[in-house]
């Protein structure tokens, strides 16, 4: 850890763990020399850390059970996948029968939504509202509570404004949108290089689930996944790694 300026609690923590850079270590030691009470408290905490580590090491390493061997996990995964394909195949048979019966009706239906590239509406919204300026928002970041309330009412379920500070993105605001499947919304973030990253969420006309996927559309890349009733996309310039990072964080929570 390298830092400068006044000694903080984070310096003390790094001191206890023995993780300060040599220069900072000298500064912290000089500081502690003038604070004997704090110094002794910290020495005790340091001893506690050593005790914890030593105690954990006293546990003899257990052999890894066969069920946790990767070869075994992979075999089980393959078995699961096969049964999923069997279900899918059965479903397709039913669909084929239904398709024959319904052929006359279907002819006059408009083209299904799925025929468009996935999350095309998200890309359009991103270009219109977030691509040019990070500040084209209805609800600025300070109104995050109002934003949450409005979007939750709009989408008829509790929607939390994602906190992406962990991946280095700062929230700038959001807006309500209409998507091609129903009510939607978009949260806008700024990346470290000033790039705009947006999280797009919409209600799905037909519930579906899908793992994280991505699609590049010109200079914009969308990472998207479906969780049943909701579709999510994280969008950003194709040159920035942040949309992907944010999408991985958010989608792994599902």
């Amino acid at each position: 850890m390298s830092r400068s300026g006044p000694i903080g609690d984070d310096d003390i923590q790094a001191f206890i763990d023995g993780r300060l850079a040599p220069d900072r270590l000298r500064e912290v030691e000089a500081f502690l020399a003038s604070e004997p009470a704090l110094r002794s408290r910290i020495e005790q905490q340091r001893a506690d850390v050593h005790a914890l580590r030593a105690a954990a090491q006293l546990r003899p390493p257990e052999p890894i059970p066969a069920s946790l061997r990767l070869s075994e996990v992979r075999r089980r995964r393959a078995a699961q996948t096969i049964s999923r394909y069997r279900q899918l195949a059965a479903g397709l048979c039913l669909f084929a029968v239904g398709g024959l019966l319904g052929a006359g009706l279907v002819r006059h239906q408009p083209a299904p939504v799925a025929a468009r590239p996935q999350m095309a509406d998200a890309v359009v919204a991103f270009r219109a509202f977030a691509g040019r300026s990070v500040d084209m928002v209805e609800f600025p970041a300070a109104q995050v509570a109002v934003m949450r309330q409005m979007i939750s009412r709009h989408l008829r379920q509790d929607i939390v404004v994602p906190d992406l500070s962990g991946v280095g993105l700062s929230f700038r605001g959001g807006r309500l949108l209409a998507s091609d499947e129903g009510p939607g919304g978009m949260f806008v973030y700024a990346g470290p290089a000033g790039e705009t990253i947006a999280v797009y969420v919409k209600t799905l006309a037909a519930a579906r689930k899908a793992d994280l996927n991505s699609r590049q559309d010109g200079e914009v890349t969308a990472y998207f996944w479906f969780t049943g009733g909701l579709g999510y996309a994280v969008l950003g310039p194709s040159t920035s790694p942040y949309a992907k990072r944010a999408a991985e964080q958010l989608s792994s929570r599902e």
Partner: peptide, 25 residues
């Protein structure tokens, strides 16, 4: 699970030390 940390202590180690380690966990 760490509660039983002291049970795995090396018999030759200082008993007091082992107790302290178990306490920490």
């Amino acid at each position: 699970d760490h509660d039983d940390g002291a049970d795995h202590a090396d018999p030759s180690s200082d008993q007091h030390q082992a107790l302290h380690l178990g306490d920490a966990l």
